[in-house]
Simulated scan of single mutants.
Amino acid sequence: MPALAVAPPSGVEAPSWLLLDGDSGQVLAEHDADQRRAMASLTKLMTTFVVFRAIEAGRLDWDETVTVPQAVREVAGDESKMYLVPGERISIASLMRGLIIASANDAAITLAVAQAGDISRFVAEMNQEAARLGMRDTRFANVSGITAPGHYSTARDLGRLALALTREFPGYYQISAEPVFRHGQFVKHATNLMVGGDDRSVDGLKTGYTSAAGYCVIASAKRPQANGGSRRMFAVVLGADSDLRRFDDAKVLLDYGYNRFRNVQLARAGVPFGDLPIWKGASDQLGVATDHDLVLSLPDDIDPKGLRSELVGARAPLLAPISAGEAVGSYRVLLGERVVASGALYAVEPVAEGGFISRTVDAVRLLFGGGEPIAVQGDAPLASRG
């Protein structure tokens, strides 16, 4: 859900961009974020994602050695590469470092063939993952990002991919934070000039450039917060007119996000968020929780004490027995009359059927109009206001 209205950042010149909070998942600012555009080597984020998924599933191993395929001969002289030779043996770990740090197209091809057998099957997996992640305005036609018909994405979709990659495979940052890649005699500094620069909070993610895409970057930063924790943010910049301009735009966006917004934690996964009334049970109250940490990004000038929560049962009446983890209702968090967060609620603990007498009493009460839908309201139970 987009953040509450606040004056937009000034000085961002790229034609399409988006700022995303990595903890709340909220878009804090955007401009033409749904415009379909060529994405150049930002493509490799999905290539990386699919390979990480294969490693997780046991189809590839990080230390496994594979053979460089003949297909790397197709990499043109002006494309980024690590100068792999067909028939060469190389580890998956080295290929992933070449892909992420040096943006090597020959590494992308070698990984695709190693994982799927051929490039077309790997591309099909990329599109399947895009659909699963809700990237509705994205289609992949190759593994490296070379300009091709029907190969496009948007700032919004790429932000969604960056968030998923970060949450599902945080080990990515151990690689993307490295400033230099070496393979044999080949040495290349990271293509993301923000990594290792003046802002030490920047630790990835990816750059890209083609004449069709312009200069692109997804920059991720993780900065300490006043409450002792840390906070991640993503700046997606597409189509900037120069190499340095994309990094300037990303810095403006990141600074804007950290300076103008703060996060409040409303709930923790599995920790009771509140109670709902339950009928014919061993208890008349059911503790409910979200299945994920619930974080909200608010402009600095909004007091989180003004937030209210509203809990509603999924059915009326809500009858025992109830199993732990069962979906039993929904929540809304409101600021004034505006809904700023919503989602499902789950039973924290099981509730068994009550005894004969309590079930009979509840049955009588239900006959006389009990059990109608009830919205349980109160202050939002902020777990942290930092």
Rank of each mutant, 00 (worst) to 15 (best):
Y258L: 07
L165W: 03
S176T: 14
H151I: 08
G329I: 09
V288S: 01
A130P: 02
A76T: 08
G11V: 11
L276V: 12
I92H: 01
T290I: 00
G159P: 07
I109Y: 11
S201Q: 06
D23S: 02
G25S: 04
K44T: 09
P179R: 15
D291I: 01
V340W: 10
W279L: 08
P179V: 15
H189F: 14
F181K: 09
P373V: 02
N127Y: 03
S16Y: 12
Y172L: 15
T138G: 09
D203C: 11
A38S: 15
G58Y: 00
A162Y: 05
R132Q: 14
M96E: 05
F122Y: 04
A226I: 04
S323I: 01
E125F: 00
S120F: 09
D118A: 05
H189V: 07
V271G: 07
E168F: 01
T147D: 15
V123H: 06
Q285I: 02
D23R: 11
A130S: 11
G58Q: 00
L298V: 03
F181V: 13
A235L: 13
A29D: 03
T67S: 09
G214R: 13
G98M: 06
D78W: 08
V68C: 05
D291R: 06
L238S: 05
M82C: 03
A212H: 10
H189Y: 15
I90T: 07
L42P: 07
F273G: 03
D249P: 14
R59M: 00
V85F: 09
L193P: 04
F140S: 07
M82Q: 10
E349K: 09
G270V: 09
I100H: 05
P224V: 02
G371N: 06
K188W: 11
E74C: 01
S153E: 09
R156C: 02
V351C: 12
R223M: 09
P299W: 02
P9E: 09
D291G: 00
T65D: 03
G239C: 14
K305D: 09
G117P: 04
D106T: 08
D275L: 12
T65M: 02
T47D: 03
L276W: 12
S16L: 14
R73K: 12
V72E: 04
G343P: 13
V68H: 06
G343Y: 12
K188I: 13
E349Q: 12
R268A: 12
C216T: 11
Q35S: 14
S342D: 14
T110G: 11
H151F: 12
